[in-house]
Design a protein around this nucleic acid. Structure first.
Lengths: 332, 332
DNA sequence: CTGAAAGCGCTTACAG
DNA sequence: CTGAAAGCGCTTACAG
């Protein structure tokens, strides 16, 4: 193993002290431009990369953030990409930590993670049993942020809980002639499921339409399927507002098997634009989210909290509706 | 920020030297059981966690592995969970690194990652422009392992390239009466796409059936759709072996639009068991892979290479076929 | 089996 | 604006 270049090597080549090299790399602006240049050139020539472990030991900051994942969390690819990129820009790295087991085990493991001081911040894409990120926590403590969270009053907050597209879709369906609606929820320990349900209920009220039911699901295609199987024969024509595309897909299969025509007997909307949704027969109307930006914003909010800077509000408007064949005027 | 407990604190409480604490935690077996017990108890009482940065600085081992991801890689959730768990058992953490841009930019960024000495090993779930992990590289150098890789002779290798289920599905389809087959490939810079295509071609030969074509795709539903649209009207009855479920879903939509009945005019198989596949109408026959084990094995192979231990062979047999409605006897 | 000591590579007051 | 020096918390020969 060839010896790594250190700041001392760079200092020697540039003809300055080790401290000067350090000042250049930590962005101190007290170094003259010519000196800075010499240092940077020497560093480039030697392919110098500061040893993060040494820096971390000295500053007692790890520069590490954790993303905790459970088996049940949704496809994290774009979220992770966005978060990683934003973290990298701010000088942080993101580690994946798997939280196996049930709620109790996960909570214990998370608490241990927090107390380990290994991470400056911890990000979760799904609900976790902690209070939301607060900048007033003791300085130096690990900050925890969930993208899908309840605040102190059990209101929903976070970038995943902007459910306005639900209302927009229902308005359009009403314009198309729909008067009867059904909602299948996601798992109700998810704030995003709560906010979509609440948005549905508010829209029913506001639009003066009939709700045939709000039925609790768990995000899975299986519940969509079973719930649609159990709807009364008298349900059609109606519009089904499903919590996500999986639920919608399951419900569509059940509807087709019952001989209901989609979209005229049952119009249906999803959420997420799952991979196959555009190619279903009929193709599924859904909500597309910019998940990479969502992930990046979440990382930025976490980092702001870690740095005790003001935490920006969750981004909104990162989602838009894609109208496809599963929604149209009801049969009369 | 309350001061962190150090090995010195533990040593003091346990009435031993700091070195003894270190020996206990690094697994030296030269410490007597009673002493080890005292140390462990003291550590537990103080909630001591070794400072990884300090350890890393001393050992010049970072204990960090990177998983590189590009926008185009598949859903990494289970792979990541498996890899993370296996890494954690071996004392490593896994960081996500985003490789944006085109092939050249990605290659440059990867080279930089390798030369940064920040990671002991780098894992990729998709093809990357490097030679496979080799234990004869210079000691201390960063090891790179791709789950989907070409070996020196451009043969395919790695846990993603076991394509035997293709042959098994085709045998069954032949038993059902099928004599005409079509294959739509994945992106052919993926070894897994190559191996599935080769398995298809070998099975055509061996089973003595007719191949209406091997058509190059790119894993997307869109290519499946367009390619199926372009098949001759005389194609049915036939069986379509699609490179994955997305391709299969796109092809199914095109077939339905052409008035072909699935499965009698066109039987179809996918690969991956995508989220909606079981609820399509008809539901899609596919190959389920144990992706968490796949990810865990990959991490173990990488770690073995990092440690210059013999690298175990890629696991096989982690996949099985799920027969659903999209496959049946052809119309005669 | 244990203790005193050096040193990994950095950052950061401090004195010039 | 720069240099000499201390120290972050560990590990690991080395001497006992």
């Amino acid at each position: 193993m060839q010896k790594r270049t250190t700041s001392r090597d760079v200092a020697r080549l540039a003809g300055v002290s080790q401290a000067t090299v350090s000042y250049v790399f930590t962005g101190k602006d007290t170094i003259s431009a010519p000196t800075r240049d010499r240092v940077l050139r020497a560093a480039a020539e030697l392919n110098y990369q500061p040893n993060l472990a040494a820096r971390s030991m000295r500053t007692s900051r790890t520069g590490r953030l954790a993303v905790v994942m459970t088996v049940s969390s949704l496809n994290p690819r774009e979220l992770l990409l966005g978060a990683t990129e934003a973290a990298s820009e701010a000088g942080y790295v993101i580690e994946v930590v798997y939280l196996p087991g049930g709620p109790d085990e996960r909570a214990a493991r998370l608490a241990q993670l927090v107390s380990s001081s290994q991470y400056e911040g911890i990000l979760s894409f799904s609900p976790i049993p902690v209070s939301p990120a607060s900048a007033d926590a003791e300085p130096g403590a690990t900050v925890v942020l969930s993208l899908s969270e309840f605040d102190d009053d059990m209101h929903v907050t976070g970038e995943f809980t902007d459910a306005r597209p639900i209302a927009e879709m229902m308005e359009r369906l009403v314009q198309l002639g729909h008067r009867r609606f059904v909602h299948i929820t996601g798992a109700l320990d998810f704030p995003s499921a709560i906010s979509r349900r609440d948005e549905y209920l508010a829209a029913v009220e506001r639009l003066g339409v009939e709700s045939l039911g709000v039925i609790e699901g768990d995000w899975s295609a299986e519940t969509g399927y079973r719930i649609a199987q159990a709807l009364p024969d008298t349900a059609p024509p109606f519009a089904l507002i499903a919590a996500n595309d999986l639920v919608a897909t399951g419900a569509m299969r059940a509807a087709i098997q019952r001989g209901w025509h989609i979209p005229s007997d049952m119009s249906v909307t999803g959420w997420d634009d799952a991979g196959q949704s555009a190619y279903l027969v009929p193709s599924l109307t859904t909500v597309v989210q910019d998940r990479q930006t969502l992930g990046a914003n979440a990382a930025r909010r976490l980092i702001a909290a870690v740095r005790r800077e003001p935490v920006p509000a969750p981004a909104t408007g990162l989602q838009h509706i894609v109208w496809r064949e599963s929604t149209a005027a009801p049969s009369s």
